[in-house]
Design a protein around this nucleic acid. Structure first.
Lengths: 230, 230
DNA sequence: CGCATACTTGACGTCATTCAAACCGTGTGG
DNA sequence: CCACACGGTTTGAATGACGTCAAGTATGCG
């Protein structure tokens, strides 16, 4: 299946947005659209010819596993995000779909060729990479020495901000993209602790829960206080 | 002070190594050498015109502070490493010298111009950025749900590997580049816990301590076991 | 010598984990 | 339609690891 860039929802925000129409069409000729179901894997740690991809819709997780086989989620990927380690001989982490997702995939050699041909693409990917680095470091800050409640409140705050259209405002209510276990794996906690602290944050009056995944922000200021951010 | 690229110890490994001699000299004309003493700051979080820099010798730390003012070390920078957030309007983190360090600094606009002029430089910085991302994620793995002893053993293992010339072998003995407090800030622990666990790892026979900073690897296999890496 | 800074060590308290059991929504088969 | 099983979730009680507080020991520098 070839790519229909004209109708692509992330046409203006993905890395390829920096290309001219002709350049973009040339790149698209090398790419393929792919749809992943929830839980389906894009590639696994150790794969030698891991594809590169731009996420068009849905959500992905990037995760590693420790010696005992416990999953650790290192990053979430949202639409217009780019996936792919260009200079490593093999993939370092697993990439799995959290929900049904559509991607634009490319062979790594094609992307490597493209960044040689189109310098603007290299700069766009550099920008994305630096943003990923900031996101990774902010997760690192989160899981530092903060209490379980603080970590969870901060994560909820981030999700609310991500679910909102305007980046500085919080969404009124939204659906958690992750299971309790996945939240625990992101924050370095256990499922039970996440469940308990969610209950406490609700009892404190900062949020309300709607079913298993639904969250409504009741008191944004309180949530912000709990999250320990000024 | 202008730059003497000819005698630069990281001439072949830093990002500028991808440039031709003429290109490099042109870039060098815009740069300045700077020496930082231990504890001196390159720039602070929030600075609007934070410089960019390549580290020539010494070591830097990148750190953030939480609401209570506790430092959290997010990354260490070694010689030939590049510092600088090219696309952000201001710096997100503090950068401070851990030891006396020499750097090649550039105004951000000069680096931005250079990556437009020299596509190879953009690709080199992309590569570095992806490596930084991997390093950040590996620190994230480390501070996940592992015990204090495991985290500390893994950090010692990494330092031993970094102090060695061949990347896959461990240095016999080396000096810790960080104080106890800085180690604690990297691992999300307290000074006291670091001190205690260091004692236990020594008692277990994996390492020996020489003064405050000196570490000798006695039993690499045991250290590896303690660090929870296969 | 005296002070400052870094580190070590001990006693105690707290918070998250662990283990265990119950709960709930959903889909399956009788 | 109901019984049942199953995955995800909630809740409870007990344990234990790390943090906190506090004292004490080096090491270095003016």
């Amino acid at each position: 299946m070839t790519l229909a860039c004209e109708t692509c929802p992330v046409r203006d925000s993905a890395a390829c947005a920096v290309l001219t129409e002709e350049e973009r069409d040339a790149l698209a000729a090398a790419g393929r659209t792919r749809v992943l179901a929830r839980g389906e894997m894009l590639f696994a740690a150790g794969d030698e010819d891991a594809a590169c991809a731009t996420l068009v819709s849905g959500a992905l997780k990037v995760s590693a596993y420790d010696a005992e086989g416990n999953e650790r989620i290192l990053s979430l990927v949202h639409p217009s995000g780019f996936i792919g380690e260009l200079f490593a001989p093999f993939a370092h982490h697993d990439v799995v779909a959290l929900t049904k997702s559509t991607l634009c995939t490319f062979a790594r050699r094609d992307v490597e060729a493209a960044i040689e041909t189109y310098p603007a693409l290299a700069r766009a990917l550099l920008r994305r990479s630096q943003e990923d680095l900031l996101a990774s470091r902010s997760l690192l800050e989160l899981t530092a020495q903060a209490s379980a409640e603080t970590r969870l409140a901060a994560l909820l705050h981030d999700f609310a901000a991500a679910a909102s259209d305007t980046s500085c405002h919080l969404a009124q209510d939204f659906e958690l993209p992750l299971t309790r276990g996945e939240i625990a794996n992101m924050l370095g906690l256990t499922i039970e602790t996440v469940s308990r602290k969610l209950g406490e944050i609700e009892k404190a009056g900062a949020i309300a829960r709607n079913g298993k995944r639904g969250i409504a922000i009741v008191d944004p200021a309180l949530l912000r206080t709990l999250s320990g951010r000024c």
